[in-house]
Design a protein around this nucleic acid. Sequence first.
DNA 1: ATGAAAGCGCTAACAG
DNA 2: CTGTTAGCGCTTTCAT
Lengths: 331, 331
Amino acid sequence: MANLKDVAKLAGVSTATVSRVINGSEKVNNDTKKKVLKAVKALDFKPSRVAQRLRFKDGKRKLIGLIVPDIQNPFYVDVVKGVEDISYKHDYAILMCNFAQEEAKENLYIDLMRAESVDGLIVAPVHEKDPKVIGLIRSGLPTVCVDRGVEDEHVDIVVVDNIQGAFNAVELLISKGHKRIAYIAGLPNIPTTTLRLKGYTAALKKYKIKVDEQLIRFGNSKHESGKRLAAELLEMKNPPTALFTGNNLITLGALETIHTKGLKIPEEVAIIGFDDMPWSISLNPPLTAVSQPGYDIGRSAAEMLFQRIADPTRGNIKLELKTKLVIRNSC
Amino acid sequence: MANLKDVAKLAGVSTATVSRVINGSEKVNNDTKKKVLKAVKALDFKPSRVAQRLRFKDGKRKLIGLIVPDIQNPFYVDVVKGVEDISYKHDYAILMCNFAQEEAKENLYIDLMRAESVDGLIVAPVHEKDPKVIGLIRSGLPTVCVDRGVEDEHVDIVVVDNIQGAFNAVELLISKGHKRIAYIAGLPNIPTTTLRLKGYTAALKKYKIKVDEQLIRFGNSKHESGKRLAAELLEMKNPPTALFTGNNLITLGALETIHTKGLKIPEEVAIIGFDDMPWSISLNPPLTAVSQPGYDIGRSAAEMLFQRIADPTRGNIKLELKTKLVIRNSC
DNA sequence: ATGAAAGCGCTAACAG
DNA sequence: CTGTTAGCGCTTTCAT
């Protein structure tokens, strides 16, 4: 790989001059610029972003970090896509890490981001008091939290109204006459789980339905736990007539259980899921769901991050996006 | 952020010594090591991977690139997961880019990888003669191609037996009595599309069914085109009785069209898709599909890459994994 | 407008 | 076993 020196030699100028032209500095003679550009092309020179990053300060390193909880979850894939589209426009690369809901892995990846000198970071913290993330924010690294916030900190944050979303879902179930409504939750320690629980109990309370602890089950936010917990629930002596599932993977798992048992939806058991999916309409039956705007979350987060990188002193923004109830045939 | 010098000063040693201990070099006194470690901890020092990468040569930079065609496609998500798990074990970070099936974007990202000094690259080339990828391989960068190969080049490669997979799918359809079988393909210029086409025509030929060009439709490998092409096909005066769909997104799109039209599966139209999905069983009806081992492809690719990084002279490997026909109820 | 030279944070000879 | 020093490839004063 050709480097600056090679180009300088070929063009018959100093490395400083080459650097000036590739960085679009004003103060360079048009003729020399041409010479340099020719040499650049001839050698197919691309400046080393590594060397550049070592020299540059602040917001000029052209790399941001993105830390997601579970790349296998289509919701986060949408978020990633949103972040990516915006980053591409800004000529930024993304260092992406998937911590698979494991705190140890997340911590390791956060250290990695520091060590890679990213200009900023988009992260969905493991939980609200994630000390590692809080440390990062305090250190001054431009950060925006998505999907989940951290307690009491000065960060930009993009979330969805989880309480309202869950409330709407459960209210819909109640309006259909259900009284024994189960909540198959994800990991107990993550904010979205507890917020959705709040919405669930609020809806129940509003309609004077007693909350039955037996009907609330926590899992690990993955397909497998949706499957398993749905089975547990449906095998109770007095099983629920409706299921509210905490995320799309859980929904899919629960659906699998229901089908395995040969139960009719919504006659024998109704189901509504948090998170819509592009193929929800093709499920059996077409799924009624609470839709989160994953792509917009990603876009907004990236835009907010680039704003903050440009102006680190800007006040913090908390953006709360709305969910949408998409009614199909599963309840 | 503390740096080597800070640690050296605090520990009262030279930077070289600090470097030695953080790199686990043998030749260092146990006491000084302890002092250094204490200083490292006190300052919460993490070596700059950027500086390290600038200095290190070859396979010690701890960063690989991963370039995927479409992060929204669950198949590639599995591949990514496989790569990630292996990389994590080797203490490597992944610079991931999604080129969304656009060649321009792919080229740009390949330049980025060079500029970021990755130790190696895993890529699904846009097409078989992708000059950018070929250039990369010639330049000596350890590379492994996944999902799609490049023509005539010395690369490691992990693919699936696409011809056989497609053949099996179409043969199954034929065994159910279908004669008018459509193939809803993805992008016409990508290898998997044409390979699967080969399997499709081979099966037809074997059973002496004339291939009808009208029944073969190319699209863009996404949900939308599956939806649109299925509609076109189903609205023909003499529509196909069965659909073979070229990837999972196309399948989902086609399914949506079928349901919108209120057609019964498999009675009025049968469907079999390339790519299985974790939730195929919950689709309406449970989907019969050709399953590709995405996760294993990713794992194998990463393992092969790390082997090559360790020994760049090793001969090339072409790994061809088998597909599996998963029979459920859609045909 | 251009060049010389310092230095970003680190590693790897080379001495000692 | 440990320190000194020369870079890795680039940007950026500071001169000229």
